[in-house]
Design a protein around this nucleic acid. Structure first.
Lengths: 200, 200
DNA sequence: GTCTATAGTCTGATAGAC
DNA sequence: GTCTATCAGACTATAGAC
């Protein structure tokens, strides 16, 4: 029988998660310190650990919460819709997430580049199930001749790669382009790219 | 007047750099420890610091050395060659690097995702100059009608994203595919993808 | 060149007053 | 619920013997 959280508890837990997202997404799990998170959350270090039992708990809570947000765009892909439209809309949703939630993208990028020690189970579990399901849908479209005969899994990988690149490698993109809005031209380019890949 | 390195110096410096690549590519700069690197190199920690003055020096030496390796595939792109062939060959070279040098790819990925604190200058310097040069070549091909009228910079980004994804997000790709050789199908898919994007 | 020992600092986490 | 004080361990780096 856990008591319902008070307003102050809600506020502080939210502040910690926001601060954790800021710090962990920039420095990775091991590169981040409780001190940094505490300062960012406006709390003392012991007070931080009053709300979460450990550094790992904050990080895990963040990842778990983000996982559903991260899978949502793919879940929305509708098997009964128009194939090209569905895949393009998915691409657009993913690019929007890179633009609007770059910290979340980098949090996952850090985690996965370093071998996904905290979410390996989720990758071969929920993620794999979802991807297999949607890949089957895409494969069906391909077999029916509605789109080009592409490998559905690698098509999904390519959409991840193309869209997340703009969040995860943001500093590189900006350094090369010297622009303050890389997404302005990324959108039309990705639209052309995905359309081309799907064309029969 | 620095003396030439002895055989033992060469061997140990090389061992340290290899060990550093192993460790830094897996845990990032802050997540790695001198202990890990020393063990991997078969040296004691103080002995490690006899060859390199600091942890930072090992890391920086690795990045500097890798930068040229990393730029080479793009440098090879020949303005006088056949456009589609040149761009496809570049894609193949980049995919080969992801397959044969995944640690190097992840070392850069870690560095850039975390804001490129050690190589920011190189990104807006050498890298930017090279990309601008090659983008101009591609833009020329597009204007001449030899390939589709794509944004050359974003085409280059997309080739980076598509190929590096298989090295940097290797665990995710393997978790979803449950295969021991993701590159087998990645090659043909990327070939189709890039060909399609370039088709007029 | 390589080692043991250790200095000095940082970090995650806890104890206990208020 | 929040704080000060602090512990134990890990970390980078150095000193000095061999």
């Amino acid at each position: 029988m856990t008591k319902p959280p008070t307003r102050i508890q809600k506020r502080n837990r939210a502040a910690i998660l926001t601060a954790g997202l800021d710090v962990f997404s920039q420095y990775g799990f091991r590169g981040s310190t409780l001190d940094q998170i505490a300062v960012a959350a406006g709390l003392s270090k012991p007070n931080l650990l009053y709300y979460f039992p450990s550094k790992d708990a904050i990080y895990t809570a963040l990842l778990e919460r983000l996982l559903e947000t991260w899978l949502a765009p793919l879940q929305q892909m509708n098997a009964d819709g128009d194939p090209v439209t569905e895949i393009l809309d998915y691409t657009h949703r993913k690019l929007e997430m890179s633009r609007d939630y770059p910290r979340e993208s980098r949090l996952f990028a850090n985690e996965i580049v370093q071998g996904a020690p905290h979410i390996a189970d989720h990758l071969s579990g929920e993620l794999r199930v979802l991807v297999d399901e949607k890949a089957a849908v895409i494969q069906g479209w391909a077999k029916a001749g509605k789109i080009a005969d592409v490998d559905a899994h690698h098509l999904i990988f390519s959409i991840w790669a193309l869209t997340q690149h703009y969040a995860d490698f943001d500093v590189q993109v900006r350094a090369v382009l010297n622009t303050d809005d890389p997404f302005a031209r990324a959108g039309p380019f990705l639209d052309h790219a995905v359309r081309s890949i799907l064309r029969r």
